[in-house]
Structures are given as C-alpha cells and as structure tokens.
Write a protein that binds this DNA or RNA. Structure first.
Lengths: 209, 209
DNA sequence: AGCGATACTTAACGTTGTTAAGTCAAAGTA
DNA sequence: TACTTTGACTTAACAACGTTAAGTATCGCT
C-alpha cells in the first residue's frame, strides 16, 4: 500500500512545515508574541489546521522544545570533546552558553518557563536527559580521577549547570545597557565557568573557613 | 485646602488597594494568569478603574516590581550584616535566594522576563540599583583586603550574582520531581555559593591550568 | 456511480487587554 | 439656592487571542 504511505508523508510534511515556521517565528518574536494565526499564515494554511497536528499551542511548543534539545545535545557533542573531564566541562559550558545566546527565545522556553513537558522529560532517554547526562558523566570522571572532591554527583553537576545557566539567563534577559550593565558576554561567561570550576577543584582543602 | 488633600489621599488609597490585590494575585497565580478584571473584582471596582491609576498592565506590574525591589533590598539589609566582606557576600546570597524562593512569581518577573522598566532602573538611586550596590561594595572590600584577586569589580559582582541567580531560577522553574531532579534547595544553594566564592578567593594562584 | 474517510476551511465562541462615551456626586461659583 | 465644572468611576464596546463546532472538498475504494 504505497498510497497510505504517501498520505502519511504528506501529513508529516505539513507537520514539519508548521514546526519550521513556528521555530523561526518564536525565535524572532518570542513565544508569547506569536499567534497561532501567524504561524498558519506563514505556511498558507488556516489556523485550525494546526490543531489537527498539535493538540494546542503548548503541545506545539513542547514538540519544538524537544527538537531544540536535540540541537543543544548536538551542539554539546559537536567535534571531539576533550578527554580531560575538567576541560570537557569547560567545553560543554561554552557550547551550552553559545547555544543559549544564539537562540535566546528557545532557551527561554526550554529553561526559564514552567511547562508540562518537564514532567515527561525525566522519563527514560529523552533529549533533555541526554544533555544533562553529558555533564554528569564528566563530573563522575572528574571525581574518579581525584580532580573534584568526592561529593553528591548530581549536586555538583547542578552547581555547574546553575552557574552557567545564571549567566545565560541574565544576559538574555537584560539587554546591553540595561540594569545593571552586564559586561560583554564572553568575559562574563569565561569568568563564571572558571570561578565555579576552581571552586570545585581539590587544590584547596585547608586555609578556608 | 484640606479638601484637595483628602481627595488626593482617597485616590492614593485606591491605588494602594490595586497594588496590594495585584501583588497577592500575581504571587498566587503568576503574572500571565491574572487578568485586569480579576484584580478589579478583588477590590470591588470596575476593570476600567485600574486604567485611571496605571497606564496599562505592564505599568502596573512595573510599579509592583519596584516595590518588590524595596522588599528585596530590605531583606538583604535585614539585621546586622557581617563585617567580613566574604561572610557578607554569603549572607547576601542567602537572603537573596530566600527572597526568590519565597516569592517565585515576583522573582520571575523581576529577573526572568524582559520589561521596559529595566531601561529606567539604571538611572540614579533606584531600588534595583541599591540591591546591586550592596553586593558590589562587598566585592570592593574583599578585593581591598586581599581576599579576592583584584579584577573588574562588576565582572566579579556579576559572576557572584549570576551564580546565585542560576540556582534560584532553576529551582523555581523546575518543580521537585521534574527534569532533571533538582535536589533539595538548601544544599544546592549553599554548595553553589561556596563553589563560586572559593573560586574567587586568592588561595589558589598556582597549580591550575 | 456512490460511499466513506480524511485533510482542510469557514465561522463562531469565550476571554483577554484596552478604550470611548457616559454617569453622577461633590466642589466651586453666582 | 441654582448652575456649572470637575474628576473618579462605570457601562458597553472594540480588536485580537486560543480554541472548537460544523461544514466542504478531495481522494481512494467498492
């Protein structure tokens, strides 16, 4: 039955068109400022059509979110990652930050808004879980090699994650010149990564409160 | 002319009622989920009345934002602050985090959404600027006393700020049990503060890449 | 030729932020 | 006392939004 397959393909095609148009519009104008009608106009279909492919606006954005996580995961895995776990954490952090600042509107939706999708993201082998696993593995290795003090792996992973997340979140929220004058990005990102990283290394052990 | 003053006072009274009702509703249900009509209902006025006191919803929220910054500033200044600048940064960080997690919806609006108010917040002696100045001063002292390596004061201040912001932002965005299983709050916050702080202290200087 | 399914559209609903026009009591003026 | 003015507040409506009920049209199958 080649006919059913062709129909399937055509339907999938429209679904893909919706996702692509929505992706571009969301990134350009931000999630709240893009209407279902605008997405429909962009692909020259009626607004109702979208509801035949996605349950509602949230479901559309959730689908978009998962595909963005694939991209994040790919960006973090791009090229040969350093074998030294600490260097690898550095590289992961830079890639993560670059992704966030290149796609601020998607980043905002992925990490800065509440959404039902986060309830499903924990299950099994989802794209969000894969991104996190990349960092977690590096932390495990760093501890195994005695570079990081042994501690709760997830706690340390999330200290690192929240550190870089804080920078990205601030930079994309406060535009240059606004309160409170966030300095040029690269400097702040590097400084933040280094500060958090140095704080976790074993070097120190005595002499601090 | 006592009459004009009484009228002034009565008008100010309605304005205050609006702000109080909006404050409670926003904190309970979140900014996007509270309608102008709901605020009006809560104080038993028509929705249009709000527009005689505030230009629009954004202006109402901006006013709310500034009064929240007063509270944040007060929370950070509460009680005698440690004289040791590093201890003071610790205390400021804890107060900041406590404020954010107690008022997640206001925190979200203050630090996690774009808004025009951020253009005005830079000018002169606004509440946001005062909160930031508290941290900045501690950093200056820490450098003067040789506890922090001398560096760009704003860069270091913002490394500290973004560190704690990252934790608060993640914790209030991802509810317990959601991706990726953020551990109990106090542990993560303390760990993050300590990691960033240790990373900035002068102790190390040799032996790292 | 007629039937059924399915992909899509038209038209509408209720809710939102916002505004134009009107009401009405109190203050000022004669 | 009677008339005007002022200004705080309301009623009624607007356009735009997410969403849905109902209908149309196209295609494959019998």
């Amino acid at each position: 039955m080649g006919i059913a397959e062709r129909k399937e393909r055509e339907k999938e095609d429209v679904r893909r068109k919706i996702l692509e148009a929505a992706h571009d519009l969301f990134e350009t104008h931000g999630y709240e400022n893009v209407t279902m009608r605008a997405v429909a106009d962009a692909i020259e279909y009626s607004a109702t059509t979208i509801y035949h492919h996605f349950e509602n606006k949230d479901a559309l954005v959730e689908a978009l979110c998962f595909s963005d996580f694939e991209k994040l995961s790919a960006a973090m895995n791009h090229g040969p990652l350093p074998t030294d776990p600490v260097d690898r954490i550095r590289a992961l952090g830079r890639a993560y930050a670059a992704f966030g600042m290149t796609n601020p509107n998607h980043y905002r939706f992925m990490f800065m808004t509440a959404g039902d999708w986060k309830n499903h993201a924990n299950e099994e082998d989802t794209p969000p879980a894969r991104s996190y696993a990349l960092l977690r593995e590096a932390v495990v290795e760093a501890m195994d090699q005695g570079l990081f003090r042994k501690d709760d792996v997830d706690l340390v992973s999330q200290v690192l994650w929240s550190g870089i997340h804080g920078v990205v979140a601030l930079v994309i929220t406060f535009k240059p010149g606004q309160f409170p004058r966030v300095p040029p990005r690269p400097g702040l990102i590097e400084a933040s990564i280094e500060a958090t990283l140095h704080g976790l290394l074993v070097i120190r052990k005595e002499g601090l409160h």
